[in-house]
Nucleic acid binder design. Structure first.
Length: 722
DNA sequence: ACGCCAGAAGTTTTT
DNA sequence: CTTCTGGCGT
């Protein structure tokens, strides 16, 4: 395909973005503005002009990477282009340059389960009680530290209290455990590459030479480490192309920094900026709803969204009685759409939390509608799957003690906790690896003879597996592991034959087979496969054929469907409870809803239920403030009686909390149980909620929703202190 | 060493 | 309402 043909069906701004050659480029692409097409064409255009080998494209999911690869192949732009997610790109880079990164190339990638285990170990090695130092909390703090590229020693010196000091100590111990295990966690993959590029100028030079043109998609969701990686890779040539949309930033909780995209122009003063504002995806009505909603965000760059698409059918809202009713209602509507010829593969349901899938699944089964759920990650977190993978990980990386401990008595072979503890303790005392003691159990003095014998048998099993693992068909390796270890039999026996565990194992084998087919000349196929399964994202295995797609709003990013349902528009669910205290988080929730709406091409259905049961008890819900935000858009609301125009009325009276807040004045003292006293610096009554902004000496400024916060005014002698 | 049972705890999103 | 964990009994 001649290069010019890449451009014929593009609009002017699109063509501008595609053919910009040297220097920084920012593509601010509104939802549905043909961004995917632009970056694909741009990658292809660059490939034909500078050579595919010089182009690096970073996508947000593996699925997006795969699609890009295929589209570029279809455009005939040749092979040799590097496409992947930040995580997969970094994982590969760290293997290739393991020596320079200071790790071994066969390192394991720890997922959250492994990380949780390692953190628990770290806490106990610090001789702390896991009740007082909750692993989940410690985990969060460590992840945040890594996202800010903060090392344990610096965290320790910067710690202001005992709590922070202790966290830093656990963090240091955790890092030590990772090293012992020859393992990296997800954050490390990015962090290590960022550090490596900083430290190793020679390598950076090489990479800059190789990847002379770098494209980063979904730039609004990059975190600090990702930002630095992109920046370092393009230090000399400055050929960075960032694409994204600030209104679709939804990963702030994972360390994504909206400032990365907002400050691009000041980072690169010579940047060319292309705005793609025409929407080609949605009907006018859908786009109006999206725009109406996002307008409610204060922290935002104003943007003109427009389309030449037809008006389309009305956006519908449905008020259901409860979650089950909602699920049934949605299933019923989908059945009707299907009868009228709508393909199931073009229909999707989005929701805020995974817990909502259950009722939906039941409803779909009742109606015999086929569906697929986007949850690749969950599959690889299943116990039976993790067990198999742990065996394989030990084969590839014998230092991986977390995996070793997982399999040493799985399936049960009479090696109990006491034995394992003794083995590990002895390993620590002698400075040897547990795996080496397994192979020489008789040398571990304090083991009982029977236990040592069983460990010896286990060692023989590992030896057998090691020979198997040297093979070059991953499928065969997986199959033989299943049979030699007895995992297959155990699962079949326990499950009585018909649970989905057996099916999961079969699925794992076919995943391995698929990998074999796609990677015929891989030097280390097992290692490669393990890496791939460690880094799967939820949407990776969605295939769009013949089934309704169910997924979280987060997973919906980057996808599009003819018909979209968004369920559970309720206060506390969407926006989620966790966002109640912070204006920024509330805005992120609104963006999340915006992302959902803008996935729809032709039809959009919103819904909420009047009652929802949560953890056993059923509560009366309050509809989402986003429903009120949409009041200016012509959404037609129906209630369960079928009555049309059941348009939600505005909340009649101010709540008690809001009435109290009417007496607050900017400048007065406030008290918050978590942050202490602070001064009120702003009161914002413009949105659907009243927001108060308070400056605390120790914590800086925080925003609170008056409706929900525990913030109160400090009163002195019955009057406010001024 | 293992398996069962009772009780507690859990409130989001994911590479 | 679940899922996991820890303790206790065999």
């Amino acid at each position: 395909m001649p290069a010019e043909a890449l451009l014929t069906d593009l609009t002017d701004p699109q063509r501008e973005a595609v053919t910009h050659r040297d220097g920084p480029l920012l593509v601010l692409a509104a939802a549905g503005s043909g961004k995917t097409r632009v970056i694909t064409r741009r990658a292809a255009w660059l490939a034909t002009h500078v050579g595919a080998g010089h182009v690096l494209a970073i996508t947000f999911t593996n699925k997006a990477a795969e699609e890009m690869r295929q589209r570029i192949a279809a455009l005939g732009a040749g092979r040799g282009l590097t496409v992947g997610t930040f995580h997969s790109f970094c994982a590969r880079l760290l293997r290739q340059h393991a020596d320079r990164a200071g790790i071994e190339a066969n390192y394991s990638i720890f997922d959250q389960t492994d990380r949780g285990r390692a953190i628990k170990d770290a806490i106990s090695r610090c001789e702390l009680a896991s009740e007082a130092w909750k692993p989940s909390n410690v985990e969060l703090r460590i992840s945040q530290a890594k996202n800010h590229m903060l090392a344990p020693d610096r965290m320790l010196t910067e710690a202001v209290d005992f709590r922070d000091q202790t966290i830093a100590r656990i963090y240091a111990q955790y890092e030590h455990i990772l090293t012992e295990n020859n393992a990296l966690d997800f954050d490390d993959l990015l962090l290590r590459v960022a550090q490596l590029l900083d430290r190793d100028k020679a390598l950076r030079g090489e990479l800059e030479e190789r990847f002379a043109y770098v494209l980063v998609d979904e730039y609004q969701d990059t975190n600090r480490a990702q930002y630095l990686i992109a920046r370092r890779l393009t230090e000399t040539r400055r050929n960075i192309c960032a694409t994204g949309d600030p209104d679709q930033s939804i990963y702030g909780w994972r360390g994504a920094n909206l400032a990365n995209i907002l400050d691009f122009e000041s980072d690169y003063p010579d940047a060319k900026v292309v705005r793609l504002e025409q929407n080609y995806r949605s009907t006018r009505r859908i786009l109006r709803a999206a725009d109406e909603l996002i307008q409610a965000n204060q922290r935002r760059k104003e943007k003109q969204l427009w389309t030449e698409n037809p008006e389309g059918v009305g956006v519908c809202g449905f008020i259901y009685d409860d979650a089950q009713d909602e699920a049934d209602g949605i299933a019923e509507q989908i059945a009707r759409l299907h009868e009228r010829g709508r393909s199931l593969g073009q229909i999707a349901i989005f929701y805020r939390v995974n817990a909502m899938t259950r009722v939906l699944e039941e409803a779909f089964r009742k109606k015999a509608l086929s569906y697929q759920i986007a949850r690749g990650v969950e599959f690889y977190n299943r116990r039976e799957i993790k067990d198999v993978l742990a065996y394989l990980r030990v084969m590839v990386n014998p230092s991986d003690e977390i995996s070793l401990v997982r399999i040493i008595n799985t399936p049960a072979r009479g090696i109990g906790k006491t034995t394992i503890d003794r083995l590990r303790a002895h390993a620590r005392e002698t400075g040897r690896r547990s795996i080496d003691l397994v192979a020489a159990a008789e040398t571990v003095g304090n083991l009982k003879a029977a236990a040592a014998k069983r460990i010896g048998e286990f060692a023989a099993l590992l030896e057998k597996l090691r020979k198997v693992a040297a093979g070059d068909s991953v499928r065969e390796i997986v199959e033989k592991t299943l049979s030699l270890t007895g995992l297959e039999r155990t699962v079949a026996d326990q499950a009585g034959g018909d649970s989905d565990q057996v099916g999961n194992l079969a699925e794992l084998v076919s995943a391995a087979a698929e990998y074999d087919q796609e990677h015929t000349d891989q030097k280390q196929p097992l290692q490669g496969w393990l890496e791939q399964v460690s880094l799967v994202s939820d949407v990776d295995k969605l295939d769009g054929a013949g089934a309704v797609s169910l997924m979280t709003l987060h997973a919906a990013k980057g996808l599009e469907f003819d018909v979209v349902f968004i369920a559970g528009l309720e206060e506390g669910l969407l926006p989620h409870l966790r966002s109640r205290d912070s204006a920024d988080e509330l805005e992120e929730e609104r963006r999340l809803c915006f992302v959902g709406i803008t996935r729809a091409r032709q039809e959009l259905y919103l819904s909420y239920a009047l009652y929802r049961s949560l953890r056993g008890s059923t509560i009366r819900t309050v509809r989402s403030p986003f429903v009120d935000d949409l009041e200016g858009a012509d959404v037609e609301w129906h209630d369960r009686s079928g009555a049309r125009d059941a348009r939600p009325r505005r909340r009649a009276a101010r709540s008690e909390a809001e009435r109290l807040a009417l007496r607050w004045r900017v400048g007065q003292l406030m008290y918050h149980p978590e942050y202490g006293t602070g001064r009120l610096v702003r009161l914002d009554r413009s949105g659907s909620r009243t927001m108060a902004r308070v400056r605390f000496t120790a914590y800086g400024e925080k925003s609170f929703s008056v409706e929900h916060t525990e913030l109160e005014a400090v009163e002195i002698d019955g009057d406010f202190e001024q």
